[in-house]
């Protein structure tokens, strides 16, 4: 076991509502790890905590052995690339200009991107197969193409860890599949550890080396913070199961996470999950 990302007892409340309770995980370096769970289970929040964008109320995050809360922003950006779920666009920057902003952690205080940075940005666009978009305005390309550009931007950071928040949202059936295939190819070729959140359990089964199944904390468990604090041994954990996909994805675990009955069928040596 070579732990890439370790979380130790992460808890976070938002508007005095417990979103994440005591999340302790060990995610293997070099793996493709998927965080899976229903809406509101805190998977996006967990991803942001790992990336240092949000600070947990308690608990620690170690990435590659470094304590994230003690890392400088530049070091953090060299270690981890983050692809957000929302696709904001304001000015019609070209796709290449957007990708070039990923070079930020490698550019010294008063300087600007140089030829080497431009080269790295071009390589990153090449990796995601988006070179043809280089000079297109970001505001005029499709949602799927924007996703590729944002992934290229994160790759331009040359990170060891790539965090993606629902990389398949905004994409159609075919593009979902292609983007996920591309992510696994990049993970292998570039030796990047991928931690991503996904909505579709079948995608998670197909594309992950490791899976973390999360559930949403119910009102009873997290509605009243004071009550939660007083009651120390109540069950307020989000993590239903974590580990190899086939072990995590059992009908019992799925029921606990999503509250629905499912059945697994085996098609051409692939496990497919069907709601009943």
């Amino acid at each position: 076991m070579n732990p890439g990302v370790i979380t130790e007892g992460i808890s976070l409340s938002y508007n005095s509502r417990l979103v994440l309770g005591d999340v302790s995980l060990q995610l293997r370096k070099g793996a493709i790890v998927t965080l899976l769970g229903p809406n509101g289970c805190g998977k996006t929040t967990l991803l942001k905590i790992i990336n240092g964008l949000l600070r947990p109320d308690s608990g620690k995050v170690y990435v590659d052995g470094y304590d994230v809360s003690r890392m400088g922003q530049t070091d953090m950006a060299r270690l981890m690339g983050h692809v957000p779920q929302t696709q904001r666009s304001s000015f019609p920057f070209t796709a290449l200009d957007i990708v070039l902003t990923g070079r930020m952690p490698h550019i010294s205080a008063l300087s600007q991107p140089g030829p080497r940075d431009l080269e790295k940005a071009r390589q990153a666009m090449d990796m995601v197969g988006a070179s043809h978009l280089s000079s297109r305005p970001y505001t005029q390309i499709s949602g799927g193409e924007r996703q590729l550009v944002m992934i290229a931007r994160a790759l331009a950071q040359e990170p060891s860890f790539l965090l993606l928040d629902e990389p398949t949202s905004y994409l159609d059936f075919k593009n979902q599949h292609q983007v996920l295939k591309m992510i696994s190819r990049i993970a292998r070729d570039q030796k990047v550890t991928v931690v991503m959140t996904l909505h579709d359990p079948n995608h998670a089964l197909m594309f992950s080396d490791e899976l973390v199944l999360l559930r949403k904390l119910t009102e009873k468990e997290c509605g009243d913070e004071q009550k939660f604090k007083g009651e120390s041994n109540c069950n307020h954990q989000n993590v239903v199961a974590a580990g190899r996909p086939a072990e995590v994805m059992t009908p019992e675990n799925i029921f606990e996470a999503y509250g629905i009955e499912v059945e697994f069928i085996n098609v051409r040596k692939r496990l497919i999950l069907l709601p009943l």
């Binding site: 964008l53 953090m76 904001r88």
Partner: peptide
């Protein structure tokens, strides 16, 4: 957030 994630 996009700025923060690249270290700015």
């Amino acid at each position: 957030e996009e700025a923060r994630s690249v270290g700015l």
